[in-house]
Amino acid sequence: MTDVALLPADEQAPLEGVIKGEVLRMYQEVAEHPEGEFHFYHGRQAAELFGYEPEWLDRALPGAVASFAGVGNPHLRSALQPGEAVLDLGSGAGLDSIIAAWQVGPTGRVIGVDLNPTMCRKAEAHAAASGVRMACHEGRMEDIPLPDASVDVVISNGVINLSFRKRTVFRELFRVLKPGGRLSITDIVSAKQLSQSIVNDPKLWAS
């Protein structure tokens, strides 16, 4: 959640690797066992809390809704238009990508990027079963696997806070957006610098 690395570089790299593993594990757990208990609200309950249209949640594949693990509703301000190209950064089980795909229509396209290839395949399957297409690329948000100036809009939901290198993430978002492109992201911020004990705890960081 911080924007500043607290650890020396030689200590940060191993911790970053452990946290990456914990992030992969936790969000795959949400996708595979959405009935489980987690630190955060998830599924339809969370989506309704954040103002997702009930008709979206009825229309999307139940598995995509049940695995929703966002922290807000980026669609409230995304103003997506037919034909636009959208990047869903950290696309997870695919609910936000599916909703975006409905809005940009068949002349638009939605590209997901997720750290977890299993989640990518799951999101693509959820999208197909919901009547839309999205292409998901395995990749890191600090090194987005897309060309410069290739998307009109970036959406993201509760993902960037998981990165140790947020400055790099925002530079990447700037790079992949076309001139005049926009972003609508929901994420977690903290008013105070997190303690070293929290930063060093992969489970807390990943939650």
Binding site: M1, P74, G181, R182, L183, V189, A191, I198
Partner: peptide
């Protein structure tokens, strides 16, 4: 820690 969820919008 004053943790909040925030919706950000911005334009290139």
């Amino acid at each position: 820690y004053g943790v909040k969820a925030v919706l950000f919008t911005a334009q290139k």
